[in-house]
């Protein structure tokens, strides 16, 4: 079957090559040295930075996306606003990469519209206060532009799945608004929200183009480090590069599989 051969040759085999390479010494013997090498300060710092950035951007994306979804679906917003924002989110969640970085440079860069306006109108120099678009929080704000829409899109079915009758049943049984959310609404949504958080985490973790366009190669998250390794073997050990890739795969797999697992669990409830 062509599909299986194609994916085997061009997807599974290359990845397996890296995975096996991660456990080999340069002369081909089995070793754990490469995996242990991930503890090297430069690499460990890189992972730690990636995890922190992905976590922060996923957390902000989850909270804001959830708030927005709640406002649009349960907050009595007009249908056209909801539809417009949903369509926009379909676009924005695909609007990652280089152009997004450009738009944010024009917004929050040193000469960006918001930066300049804040300085001229309010006298607030955000760069003077230590903010930089090309730093951790600058990246987190930029990521939010595709994270929040993605959250809105993936959490909408779950919020729509909260049946009106559950709320009514709770009310008829004497529950207050907060009791309903605490005992029914939040527990029902929890697996979906957690799952979506993990999806957002993985999404941020794999982001490369936006970072490169914003910071060049100065901001060494894991994908950047790997990118440089492929370009110029900056780790001076190809097998260590393989281990770096394997680490990425592992983090992405864990968060994606947990996402799928939690989504399945949530769907079981929402039949």
């Amino acid at each position: 079957m062509p599909y299986l051969s194609f994916t085997f040759i061009f997807l599974i085999a290359p990845v397996s090559y890296l995975v096996i390479g991660a456990f080999q010494s340069p002369d081909g013997r089995f070793t754990f040295d490469n995996m242990a090498g991930l503890a090297n300060p430069q690499i460990a710092a890189s992972y730690w930075l990636s995890i922190r950035l992905s976590f922060a951007s996923a957390l902000i994306g989850t909270v804001t996306g959830l708030l927005l979804a709640h406002a649009l679906i349960l907050g009595g917003m007009p249908v056209w606003i909801r539809r417009a924002l949903t369509t926009f989110s379909g676009v924005a969640s695909n609007f990652a990469g280089v152009p997004l970085a450009f738009a944010f440079i024009a917004t929050l860069g040193r000469l960006g519209l918001v930066t300049v306006t804040m300085k001229d109108l309010l006298g607030i120099n955000i760069y003077g206060m230590g903010f930089s678009l090309f730093s951790f929080w600058g990246l987190a704000i930029t990521y939010l532009y595709f994270q929040m829409p993605l959250m809105l899109l993936v959490i909408t079915p779950a919020i729509e799945g909260l049946k009106k009758e559950w709320r009514e049943a709770a009310e008829s049984l004497g529950a207050s608004d907060s009791q309903y959310w605490r005992l029914v609404g939040a527990p029902v949504l929890a697996p979906s929200v957690l799952g979506c958080f993990l999806l957002l985490f993985a999404n941020a973790f794999g982001t490369l183009a936006t970072v490169i366009a914003l910071t060049g190669s100065n901001f060494s998250v894991v994908p950047i480090l790997l990118f440089q390794q492929i370009r110029g073997n900056v780790l001076y050990n190809p097998n260590l590069g393989y281990a770096l890739a394997l680490g990425m795969i592992l983090i992405m797999s864990v968060s994606n599989f947990l996402y799928l697992f939690l989504r399945q669990r949530a769907e079981r409830w929402q039949k």
Binding site: K163, E165, W166, E168, A169, A170, E171, S172, L173, G174, A175, S176, L183, V184, P187, V188, W269, Q270
Partner: peptide, 21 residues
């Protein structure tokens, strides 16, 4: 009065059981 102050019991066509409990 709001529904939660009326001391009524209600059954729905769709059962409306809380799925998490």
């Amino acid at each position: 009065l709001r529904p939660n102050q009326r001391k009524i019991g209600m059954m729905f066509q769709s059962y409306a059981l809380f799925p998490n409990l």
